[in-house]
Design a protein around this nucleic acid. Structure first.
Lengths: 345, 345
DNA sequence: CTGCGGCCTGGAAGCGCTTGCAGGCCGCGC
DNA sequence: GCGCGGCCTGCAAGCGCTTCCAGGCCGCAG
C-alpha cells in the first residue's frame, strides 16, 4: 500500500509525533527537522489518511447538507456553492435527501447524520416542530437556509416580500385575475417556501384591493412538468386568469408552454412571472424574481463554519438575502375586453 | 456525548466484540444475546461511528465522483443518480471538481482522493494520457463515464453516433449550411465529449455529401451564455447557417434566443437541435437527442460497486447507452431561396 | 463415562493518526 | 560555575471500532 506516517518517521529518523507536527505546521519543530520531514514525505508521496486523523482528532471534518433532493436546479447550485467554501476549509460535504421513499420521516427517525458530521445545513427542511426538535436534540450544530428557526442561525430570502414583488408587478400592470402555481399543501419538500410565497401573493392582492380566489391557486410541485399540469387546470376554469405567478422558474416555463399550446399569446393574452432567475430564464425571456443561489450556499456554509470554529456560544443571526425583479418578456398589461377563451382538451 | 460501543457492551453485559458482531448480523452470536444487545443499543440510541469502523475495517466506504463541475444540469443529474445507488450500498459519494482554479492539473498533481476513497468515477475526465496514467497508478479502482479508456470499465453514449443522428436529421430536412456549437478547443472540461460530437458532425456532413466549413464551428462552453455568444458569432458571417447543432441543450436555448432577437424565426429561418433532453427542453419545444443521465449515473455506480465487491479481477466492459432523436418544434426544412439576412449589432 | 467437535464469547491487538506529558539539551543570568 | 527556563523531541495513551485467536461450554458419539 502507500506510505504511512510510520514509514515517514523511520525514513526521516524521527518519531511519528514529530512527523505529525512537522507536516501540519505546528510549532515546536526545529526548522531543520521540519525540512527533512517534509522532504521525506514528498519523496514517499505521503499523505495523511483522513479517516485516521479524524478519529484521532475527534473531528469528522464533514458537514451535512440536508436538501429535499439533488438534481434540481436550485439545490444543485446550492450544493456547488456550499461545496466550494467547505472544500477550502478542509471539510467534505455530505448530502442527505429528504424527499423520496421514507422522506423526512425517515431522516428524523434515523438521524442518519449522527456521528458522521460536525455540522448540518438544513435547506428548506420540511420538518414540523417535533421533527425539528428531534434533530436539534442531537446537539449537532446547525444552520438553516430558506427559513428561520428559533435558536439556529440561518439565511433566507424574504419569500413573502419576493412574492409580493412578483404579484405587485402584475397588479401594477393592471391584472386582476392572478393565479398562483405553488407547491401542494402536502408538499413533501420546500416546506415554508411555498407557504411564505402564498402569503406574499395574498398580501399583494390585498394591497391592490383584489379579491382572493382560491380556485386560482394550484399546486405545481416545483417542476416544469408540474407547472404544465397546473396550467392545464387553470385553463379549464370558466374565466381563466390573465396572469400567473409561478413559485419557480421551471414551473413558469412549463406553464407558458401549455398556455401557448392552448392558443394564448404570452404576454399579450397571459402574463407569467417566476421566481429564481434560473440560468436559462434569460434565454426564454422569462420575467422573474432574481436570487443568488450560489451566493446563498457560500454564505450559509460560512455561517456554519464560523459556528464550528467558535464552539463557544455565538449569536444566532437571521440574515435576509436580497431579491430583485427582472422584467423580461413574459409580462404585459392584461388584454383589453374579454380575454380570448383559449382552451384545450 | 453519545453512546459508544463500550457503553452498549457494559449495559448488555457482554464484550465489545460481541456487540460488534451482534449489531452487524455476523454469525456466531446466540440469538438471545443478539436480542439483548439490539435492545440495549436501541435503548441507548447507539449508532456506530463510521469513522472508527472505517479505520478498523480498512474500507473508506466512500466513492469519489470526479466531474468538471457541480451545478450544471448534466452533472447534477449524474450526481443524484450515483448518490442514489451508492447510498443504498452504504457508500458516501464525494465530489471532486476539475474545472475552476488549477483545474485538472491540480487534481492530477495532488491526487486529492488518495486514502479517501475506495473507488473513483471519472465523468468526462479531461485528462490526457499522462495524466490518466498518473491517476491510474494510484491503484484506486475506477470506472469512467462519457468516454472509454483502455483497462477501465465505463459507460458512455455513442457521442459520434448521437451527433450523426442530430446532424443527419438536419441534412434530411435539406439543410446544407449547418453550424456546430461545441466546446472550445482548449476546453477545460468534457474533453472527449465535444471531440466525439465534432467527429459525428463531420461524418454526417460527409454522408450527406456536404462540404465541411470550419467557419461554421464555434465554441459554446456548454452553457446558455456560451451558446448565445456563439450564435452572435455565427450571425456575423457573410452567409449564416440555416441550421445549428448545439452540443448541449443549454447552448441550444441560448442560441435560439439570440437568433430570434436578430429577427430570425425558429424553425422557419433557422433550425436548431441540441443534445441532452434537458428537463425543460420539452417545454421550450427544443428538438434534441435524448439521453438518460440519471440512469447512466446509476449504472456507472453499480459498475464501480461490482468492481469493489469482487476485488479479484473483473472483466473490463465498455457499455454504450442509447440515445434517441426527439423531434419537437425547432427544426424544419431550410427557407427557400436566400435566407433573410437577419442580423444584429 | 470420556473425548471430541461446534458454537459462543471475551481478550487483545491493531487500524493510522493526534496529543498530553515528561525528559533532554542548551543558553543565559547571577 | 550553577540553576532555571525554553525549545525540541519521543513515548505512550488514546480515538471507537473490527477481527484474530484462544478458550469455555455443551451435546453427542463411542
Amino acid at each position: 500500500m502507500s506510505a504511512t506516517i510510520e514509514d515517514v518517521a523511520r525514513a526521516a529518523q524521527v518519531s511519528v509525533a514529530t512527523v505529525s507536527r512537522a507536516l501540519r505546521g505546528l510549532p515546536n519543530v526545529a526548522p531543520s527537522t521540519r525540512e527533512r520531514v517534509v522532504a521525506v514525505a514528498k519523496e514517499l508521496e505521503y499523505v495523511a489518511d483522513p479517516t485516521a486523523s479524524r478519529l484521532a482528532g475527534g473531528q469528522r471534518l464533514v458537514i451535512g447538507l440536508v436538501v429535499p433532493m439533488l438534481g434540481q436546479w436550485y439545490y444543485a447550485k446550492l450544493f456547488s456553492g456550499v461545496e466550494a467554501v467547505a472544500t477550502v476549509a478542509g471539510y467534505d460535504v455530505l448530502p442527505f435527501t429528504t424527499s423520496g421513499p421514507g422522506g423526512s420521516q425517515r431522516f428524523v427517525q434515523q438521524l442518519p447524520f449522527r456521528k458522521r458530521v460536525d455540522g448540518l445545513i438544513l435547506a428548506d427542511a420540511p420538518f414540523d416542530d417535533a421533527q425539528f426538535t428531534a434533530v436539534a436534540r442531537t446537539g449537532v450544530p446547525m444552520v438553516s437556509l430558506g427559513a428561520f428557526a428559533p435558536g439556529v442561525s440561518g439565511i433566507a430570502v424574504d419569500n413573502v416580500a419576493a412574492a409580493e414583488l412578483a404579484v405587485g408587478h402584475l397588479t401594477a400592470l393592471g391584472h386582476t385575475r392572478i393565479a398562483l402555481i405553488g407547491g401542494s399543501p402536502d408538499d413533501p419538500f420546500r416546506f415554508s417556501v411555498p407557504v411564505d410565497r402564498f402569503h406574499g401573493y395574498q398580501e399583494a392582492l390585498r394591497a391592490a384591493g383584489l379579491r382572493f380566489d382560491p380556485t386560482l391557486v394550484v399546486p405545481g410541485n416545483f417542476s416544469a412538468d408540474g407547472g404544465a399540469e397546473a396550467m392545464h387546470r387553470l385553463l379549464l376554469a370558466p374565466t381563466p386568469p390573465t396572469a400567473v405567478f409561478a413559485c419557480s422558474d421551471e414551473m413558469a416555463i412549463g406553464a407558458i408552454q401549455v398556455a401557448r399550446d392552448a392558443g394564448l399569446r404570452v404576454p399579450e393574452d397571459l402574463s407569467v412571472i417566476g421566481i429564481d432567475d434560473h440560468d436559462i430564464s434569460a434565454y426564454v425571456g422569462l420575467t422573474t424574481i432574481h436570487q443568488d443561489v450560489i451566493g446563498q450556499g457560500e454564505r450559509v456554509a460560512h455561517l456554519l463554519l464560523d459556528r464550528l470554529r467558535s464552539d463557544g456560544e455565538i449569536d444566532v443571526l437571521h440574515e435576509r438575502h436580497p431579491t430583485r425583479l427582472v422584467v423580461r418578456r413574459t409580462t404585459a398589461p392584461p388584454p383589453v375586453g374579454d380575454p380570448p377563451a383559449g382552451r384545450r382538451g
